[in-house]
Design a protein around this nucleic acid. Structure first.
Lengths: 249, 249
DNA sequence: AAGTGGTCTAGACCACAAA
DNA sequence: TTGTGGTCTAGACCACTTG
């Protein structure tokens, strides 16, 4: 679980740069140092806190990575203007998602097809047409009730082991995440009305609102997999928390 | 803009720890060092790269913050098992969102009420009942078409300047983000069917699917604001990208 | 008990951009 | 030109935890 609860106090910031970090953050949060304000230089801060320059440098590097502070050579360090909010969105394996709700997680494969990529596959997963892909559809159940429908394409050129994998005991998500290191992922979150098939599969009325999460994953330059997860609107929310004081987990 | 395009190469990793970072990441991504593999100790790495221990420490600290590597005292550093995907979700001001689509952004205030918080307000924003709050409703248009409905509660105890603000020229989001530093935010993303009022406001058919983004913001312990943004399903998607090699932007 | 990571120091040189 | 951040070093001590 990354992202502490919103109301938690830092407790004991014991290390020196933790204490300095907390102190500077407090100045910024309290408004003592408003956006645009120029922070003291590293040397001044080092003297003020009675520590070496490296230590305040570590703190300022953290603040800069967290976009709380903007640093410019020769000019100095400035309290950043918040241009957009960045939230850390944790996307878990569906099994753990369901179990976190204290429900029994089961699933069933609906279909499994190996084939050369069609034009449509190619667009979704980002491979050339005719690249061998594995298409898997399955349903996830929480306490035997439909919880989520999963549609997945796997690039067999990158994950040839998929040919021998029938996902009888392991979900495609779990299997592929444990097996293939990825370097980039893109999540698209949208709302949609259930198609007739989808409504039937999820036991919803026609055109019921659904939450759709699409995920594309790459390893270096190569597309690994495409997944589309469809959740009934009532059953699922995505929660993202952000506190600037994260970064060192 | 955090999160580089998925297909970009590192170009010139010029600094020493950049090069070491790239090298170690490559070993992990290529599978040379699979999940669970124990990395050489800091001293060994320092010797291998012919640099000081501080330098590899910086790299390993970054990798650990990015959850690519797990570090345990006495045991060593290990390639992490990817338990969940964390995506960085950029949530922009609606105005910039619309302008990024090359459309004209306009908006109109529908209602503006100052009042003591009701039970319902209190639950949404997290204040005690009867705390003075400002309730604002407005519509955002892209090229004069309804784009998003915004409902917002502002805690006037924290942002008393709200009393004098009528949002004629500035959206509530933009105004409050520029003014109040926040320390924690929570985003909830869900799908819902449009209520009759909402359908009318957004010019949709009844019960059309909508994407709902709720945002709560705190300054230290205090709730600052609650916002609910409702987008027609067809008009909006949230995109989150993640590459582990971020962290130093 | 020993080796690991966690932290910190007091220097140093460099690149850069603003004055 | 000069002060700033960016980087790096060669030490050092400590805390932890595991073998």
């Amino acid at each position: 679980m990354a992202g502490t609860a919103s109301h938690k106090k830092p407790e004991k910031p014991h290390s020196l740069h933790d204490r300095i970090l907390a102190d500077i953050q407090d100045k910024i949060v309290s408004g003592t140092w408003p956006p645009g304000h120029r922070l003291p230089s590293e040397n001044e801060l080092a003297e003020h806190y009675g520590c070496s320059r490296m230590t305040v440098n570590k703190v300022l590097t953290l603040l800069s990575a967290a976009r709380i502070v903007e640093r410019r050579r020769r000019a100095g360090s400035f309290v950043a203007f918040q241009k957009s909010q960045a939230a850390i969105l944790q996307i878990h394996d569906i099994r753990s998602e369901i179990e976190a709700l204290d429900m029994e997680a089961t699933y069933a494969i609906t279909s499994r097809i190996e084939r050369p990529a069609t034009e449509s596959d190619a667009g979704l997963i980002g491979v050339e047409p005719d690249t061998p892909v594995l298409e898997v559809e399955c349903m996830h159940f929480a306490n035997r009730m439909p919880f989520c429908q999963e549609y997945r394409l796997i690039n067999l050129e990158i994950v040839p082991e998929g040919t021998r994998q029938f996902f009888d005991n392991e979900t495609p998500t779990g299997w592929i995440m444990a097996r293939v290191p990825w370097t980039a992922a893109e999540h698209t979150i949208s709302a949609a009305e259930a198609s007739p098939d989808m409504a039937k599969a999820l036991d919803l009325k026609k055109q019921a609102a659904c939450l759709v999460v699409e995920r594309r994953t790459w390893r270096a330059e190569d597309p690994v997999t495409y997944a589309r997860l469809v959740y009934p609107a009532n059953e699922h929310k995505l929660v993202a928390r952000f506190s600037p004081d994260q970064t060192a987990g």
